[in-house]
Design a protein around this nucleic acid. Structure first.
Lengths: 134, 134
DNA sequence: TATTTATTGGATAATTTTTATCCTTAAGAG
DNA sequence: CTCTTAAGGATAAAAATTATCCAATAAATA
């Protein structure tokens, strides 16, 4: 199965708990510690909170997942993929990924600041189509 | 004094502690709870941690300051000003403000996502000029 | 396949961070 | 100047995170 090799590729031992973390995160996209915990407990009722923290940390250290910081929300975690930005609805808090061309933006910032920029953490905030109709 | 009227304009009672918070934040720009606490204790050795949390919250609620989330850092707080982005050095963690033209960027994102976007939280990460020379 | 080693998971304690409570003090309206 | 309301300090309580210990297990290797 694909998730198994994904874990192995990152030098992470394959355990049922870890596979479930991957499964849940690929289903829901972004989750904070608590919702991840609750989702995991459905399959593993005895799973310890410490297990989540430990896994989140090792997975983050091995760049298997990344931490996402959204204004007014707890830290979220998502499976690593190509660099992308996030759009969040200020009404329903729904988050989507979006791939944007940031090059002109980063060039602009580089020349103004003289920093050598290589990464970005971009969150755009607004109203999603659903909430807009309500 | 200017800081007094700034507080009053936001319907915040003017206290010595609050004035010092404004002074420190306008000096250092961005601070997390702990460094703010330590800085405040120099002038008010008996200042309680609760005082900071209470003030940070009411000031945030009244849009007197804003919370800034930077990858791999604790929440930071800065005095409210025009919308701007942040650039952070991944070596020395130094943060600077930068005003960028985000309009084309936001337009791009709006048309792709169908969200009505009105705010952004943008952090660009790289190496600052100082660290680049070392 | 069996054995061994190193890592992981679970339980729990310890720390750290944040929030709540209570009472005294002080800002500022009237 | 007096009064009302909010703020500050001390502290407890709660929530979040990290650390520790040991049994269980993944997976390397014999």
């Amino acid at each position: 199965m694909k998730n198994i090799s994904r874990l192995k590729d990152s030098n992470l031992k394959v355990t049922p708990q870890r596979l479930e973390i991957v499964k849940i995160l690929s289903t829901y996209g972004h989750m904070n510690i608590n919702s991840l915990y609750e989702a995991l407990r459905e399959k593993f009722p005895t799973l310890s909170l410490a297990t989540i923290y430990k896994n989140i940390h090792t997975m983050r250290d091995k760049s298997f997942l990344s931490e996402v910081k959204i204004p007014n929300q707890k830290n979220l975690y998502e499976l690593k993929k190509e660099e992308h930005s996030h759009i969040v609805c200020s009404k329903c808090d729904d988050i989507i990924d979006i791939e944007l061309d940031t090059s002109s933006f980063i060039n602009q910032a580089s020349s103004i600041s003289n920093y050598k920029l290589d990464k970005s953490s971009i969150v755009l905030i607004g109203i999603c189509p659903k909430c807009a109709t309500i």
